[in-house]
């Protein structure tokens, strides 16, 4: 799909959770995109996609944040981010503006260029040169927004299958929500707890040592539950494995034993 002589320029959508919680996910994304022949830039005026406001019903603030994000990400051939949920939110932007509003056209233009990372690597770049020394039995959680809003299902699996050491065992109900749901997990804590408990049971049944996924919200939720239950499963974003960026601890695990400090 890409012109071989031209290096695509990517505006990286960092996503607020990766920025705050897991910078390694962003570095891994950059590494993968560069390995696939892209030039990556990090637009400085980006913040969050606005999904918390959108799903709380605060459409006015959502539209303000959308305008900021659209502006920040304009001028890039592609916009790529390590989250189906956040990229899915960028795809919702046109709903926020009336068709006659100039921002509507700009939102549509962003939607057409915005991709979740595994889908960008597979669907747009047809990238098939994953280099990773990772070894182990993994299972994969399909995060809802990526799965149902962006059609992300086989892309991460296609990439993982290129790693010799990866043994993927599918869990039961891999497409069922983990119960995160943004503020849902705090507002409806009991229901969310039941949902994440079902999920960690299914994860544990696979016998996998590592749980992978493409969205940090879900991964934080499942990691926290696995650790509370004392289930010995490491949780990582799929790009960490794909980019062979594994020197840092898994989610919610201590850096101390690796000799790092604050």
């Amino acid at each position: 799909m890409l012109d071989n002589n031209k290096q695509p320029v990517i505006g990286l959508f960092v996503t607020c959770l990766a920025d705050l919680y897991r910078p390694e996910v962003v570095f891994a994304s950059i590494k993968l995109l560069e390995a696939a022949g892209c030039r990556v830039e990090v637009p400085q005026s980006q913040t969050c996609c606005g999904q918390p406001a959108f799903n709380t019903g605060d459409f006015s603030n959502t539209a303000d944040i959308a305008r900021l994000t659209i502006t920040a990400l304009e001028g890039y051939e592609y916009v790529v981010g390590p989250s189906g949920s956040c990229i899915g939110m960028l795809h919702h932007y046109p709903e926020l503006f009336q068709p006659e509003d100039p921002w509507h056209a700009r939102a549509l233009a962003l939607k057409a260029r915005a991709f979740e990372i595994t889908s960008f690597l597979v669907d747009v770049l047809q990238f098939s040169n994953i280099q990773s020394q990772f070894k182990g039995k993994v299972t994969y959680h399909d995060s809802c927004s990526g799965l149902r809003e962006l059609g992300i299902k086989q892309q991460p699996r296609a990439l993982l299958s290129q790693i010799e050491g990866v043994e993927l065992t599918e869990m039961e109900e891999s497409e069922t929500c983990c119960g995160f749901g943004g503020t849902f997990c705090v507002k409806y804590a009991d229901i969310s707890n039941r949902m994440v408990g079902n999920k960690t049971d299914n994860v544990a049944k696979t016998g996998a040592q590592t749980l992978l996924g493409g969205d940090l919200g879900c991964l934080l939720n499942m990691a926290g539950k696995l650790q509370r239950e004392g289930k010995d499963v490491q949780v990582r974003h799929v790009v960490e494995v794909l980019a062979d960026q594994l020197s840092h601890p898994a989610l919610g695990e201590s850096a101390y034993h690796l000799g790092k400090s604050l």
Partner: peptide, 22 residues
């Protein structure tokens, strides 16, 4: 955020923010 920590641990960031490091 007791709604979260009543039922699960809360992982903390692995290092400084991406934007800082970048």
């Amino acid at each position: 955020v007791s709604g979260w920590t009543d039922h699960r641990d809360m992982p903390v960031p692995s290092s400084k923010t991406f934007m800082q490091q970048w």
